[in-house]
Computed example of a mutant assay.
Amino acid sequence: MTRAAVTAVLLAALSAGLSASPGRAAAEDAVPVCPAPQAPEFAGGKGFRLWVTRQGTMTWNNPLRPLSPESLQVLQVVIRNKLATAYGPDLSGLRRGPSPAALEAQNGAPIRWSEAMEGLPPTLRILSEDDGQVLAELAFKACGDPPKVAVPKPAPVARGTAKGQKAAAKGGAAKGETTRPETTRPETAAAEGAAGDSSTDAKEAPKPAPRAPRPRREKAAAPESPARTPGGLMLPQGAIP
């Protein structure tokens, strides 16, 4: 082989290596693109499985190297009906991560999701955070439907707080609940009866005795009428000594 032929082969290999993205598998070794809504399924030992549903990148500033921002490859995965992430400088070695929203809040940078997944390696290697040892190797199985993601339940509101009291009041008004009349205890009934008797006595107090009628003044004795005679004749006074 001539020197020109050798040079051409080396240049072709170099250009192919430069054109391929770091951490991406070659076209013949990459996982096939699954038609939506299916996703590639990876499985490992002890029945562990995950589905890769999205692929993207994140650029964030490392506090140790503020002048050289780092670019991370991020995979959104579904594990046991929960969202999680696997991220790293390339797809050859990934770290376990929280949900996409938590990862963005943790690094203070957004994830730029791509429209399609390309170049996934046939085996995903999960590395430890400390020394980079391989914790698990997950091999591609097939394209399948990922499980539905469970929606987390909202945290219960304490009853003693103002929000809890307002929510309870709104719930009771919406349901049309009415309060039941409280039963009266015997002691309470007796006390109320005593109070009622006292109020009745106060209202029906005995009236004061009527005053004794004043003695009527005797009229002056009328002058005696002149004596009458048996015959009915009237004699003037002093006529008979």
Rank of each mutant, 00 (worst) to 15 (best):
R95V: 02
R96L: 10
R96A: 06
G97R: 02
G97D: 01
P98W: 00
S99R: 02
S99N: 02
A101Y: 00
A101M: 04
A102V: 00
L103F: 03
L103H: 03
E104I: 00
E104T: 06
E104N: 03
Q106P: 00
N107A: 04
G108A: 00
G108I: 01
G108P: 01
A109C: 03
A109P: 01
P110H: 00
P110W: 00
I111S: 01
I111L: 06
I111W: 00
I111G: 00
R112P: 00
W113M: 03
S114N: 09
E115P: 00
A116D: 09
G119K: 03
G119I: 03
L120N: 02
P121V: 03
P121Q: 03
P122M: 08
P122A: 11
P122Y: 04
P122H: 09
P122K: 10
T123D: 04
L124H: 01
L124W: 02
L124F: 03
L124S: 01
L124A: 02
R125E: 04
R125F: 07
R125I: 08
L127D: 05
L127C: 06
L127H: 06
S128C: 08
E129H: 05
E129Y: 00
D130Y: 06
D131L: 11
D131S: 08
D131V: 08
G132P: 03
G132C: 08
L135H: 05
L135C: 06
A136G: 12
A136E: 13
A136R: 10
A136S: 14
E137Q: 14
L138E: 03
L138A: 08
L138Y: 06
A139P: 02
A139W: 05
A139T: 11
F140D: 03
A142T: 09
C143S: 08
C143R: 04
C143W: 05
C143A: 11
G144R: 10
G144Q: 10
G144P: 04
G144T: 11
D145M: 14
D145E: 14
P146H: 07
P147E: 05
V149I: 14
V149F: 04
V151W: 05
P152H: 08
K153S: 13
K153I: 09
P154A: 11
P154Y: 12
A155M: 12
P156Y: 05
P156F: 06
V157W: 10
A158C: 09
A158I: 07
R159T: 11
R159H: 11
R159W: 10
G160H: 13
G160V: 10
G160S: 14
A162P: 09
A162W: 13
A162M: 14
K163V: 15
K163G: 12
G164D: 09
G164S: 12
Q165T: 10
K166C: 12
A167R: 14
A167W: 12
A168Q: 13
A169K: 13
K170I: 14
K170N: 14
G171L: 15
G172T: 15
A173T: 11
A173S: 15
A173F: 15
A174M: 13
A174Y: 09
G176D: 05
G176C: 11
T179S: 15
T179K: 15
T179D: 15
R180Y: 07
P181V: 13
T184K: 13
R185C: 11
E187Y: 05
E187R: 13
T188R: 12
T188G: 07
T188K: 14
A189M: 11
A189P: 04
A189Q: 08
A190S: 10
A190R: 13
A190P: 03
